[in-house]
Structures are given as structure tokens and as C-alpha cells.
């Protein structure tokens, strides 16, 4: 069985994020929210399924998702 990918690190470049909210809107697991500065921030990292949709949708190239190293098959 294919193992579910796990999140190792979720990086948001706050200098680049313009707070458009696209990542928050489209996250299938509601992992993200806009904080008091209007920037994207990770609220529920444990729910992240590492689908990578936010990383690809981000118009500011501000999101980097680092999955845990996959065990060799």
C-alpha cells in the first residue's frame, strides 16, 4: 500500500506573500489561515496531506512544502 506523504516543513516567505488568500481558499484540509498581518500562515500543520496545491497555486511563489523523506520501496 502506498504510504501517505507526511509534512516535514511548511515554509511561507512572508516577504513575498501578498495575502491574496488563494491558498487558504483552496486548501482541501483547511490547514491555512490569514494572520493579523494578512499573510498566509499554517494553523493546522498536522492536517496537511502534502498535496502541493497551495504551492502550485501561489502567485507569489511564497510557499515551499518539504515532505518527509520517503522510505525506499
Amino acid at each position: 500500500m502506498k504510504k501517505q506523504k507526511k509534512l516535514k516543513e511548511y515554509r511561507i516567505n512572508r516577504e513575498w506573500c501578498k495575502g491574496c488568500g488563494i491558498c487558504v481558499h483552496f486548501c482541501p484540509k483547511d490547514v491555512l489561515e490569514l494572520d493579523q498581518d494578512g499573510k498566509s500562515s499554517v494553523i493546522r500543520p498536522d492536517d496537511c496531506i502534502v498535496c502541493g496545491f497551495c504551492e502550485r497555486l501561489c502567485p507569489d511563489l511564497a510557499i515551499t512544502i518539504i515532505p518527509e523523506e520517503q522510505e525506499a520501496a
Binding site: E15, W16, K18, I22, L57, C58, P59
Partner: peptide, 13 residues
């Protein structure tokens, strides 16, 4: 960076 496109502009995507 950050680029000059507006917040939410599709061009960045």
C-alpha cells in the same frame, strides 16, 4: 521579488 503583480494575479501562478 516580491514581484510587482497585484495580490491574487494569475500571472504569478
Amino acid at each position: 521579488f516580491p514581484h510587482l503583480w497585484c495580490p491574487g494575479c494569475g500571472h504569478g501562478t
